[in-house]
């Protein structure tokens, strides 16, 4: 009697499927995922995991967390990150120590793979959620992530 049970099962599973899509149809007004972008650009906020661009957060003392270890530069598959570094005297210990001069990020090259952020041991670079990245001049896509005059936060290397 496999023939009739096949028919029964077939109809049952089809009706289950229809009830699922039917529910989505009825609730679609509330849960529409389409963003009507240019109209809602004032209120549109991208979700937390959106990969807009790589930024380096600074605190109120203009201190970042980058130690200049260059792991992000090594992790980047297409050379979007360049770090210009130098050795300077450390105030507390008096020893010579590596620190960044410029953390250069080429947004135009970046494929948003996120390997640099995973590689960073001190969470110095994170994803930003901005999305309007187009410019009229591509030199504006080369960004220096550390702000002028900033320095590394004390104790971050420990």
């Amino acid at each position: 009697m496999g023939y009739f049970s096949d028919i029964y099962k077939g109809i049952k599973t089809l009706l289950t499927g229809m009830s699922v899509t039917g529910k989505y149809f009825l609730t679609s007004r509330k849960g529409a995922i389409t963003q009507q972008y240019p109209d809602n650009r004032d209120t549109l906020k991208m979700f937390e995991r959106f990969r807009g661009e790589v930024v380096m957060p600074h605190d109120e003392n203009n201190e970042h967390q980058c130690t200049g270890c260059q792991k992000c530069e090594l992790a980047c598959p297409n050379g979007s990150i360049e770090i210009i570094w130098d050795r300077g005297l450390d105030e507390t210990t008096g020893k010579k120590k590596k620190k960044i001069d410029k953390h250069i990020y080429h947004l135009g090259l970046c494929t948003m793979c996120g390997l640099c952020i995973e590689a960073c041991p001190t969470d110095a670079i994170v994803w930003a959620q901005n999305y309007e990245n187009s410019t009229y001049d591509r030199t504006q896509l080369t960004k220096v992530l550390n702000r002028p005059g900033s320095k590394v936060k004390a104790g971050i290397e420990d």
């Binding site: 989505y24 149809f25 995922i33």
Partner: peptide
Amino acid sequence: KVAAWFQLRI
């Protein structure tokens, strides 16, 4: 329109 509503679009 119906296709959009089934797929949670507008």
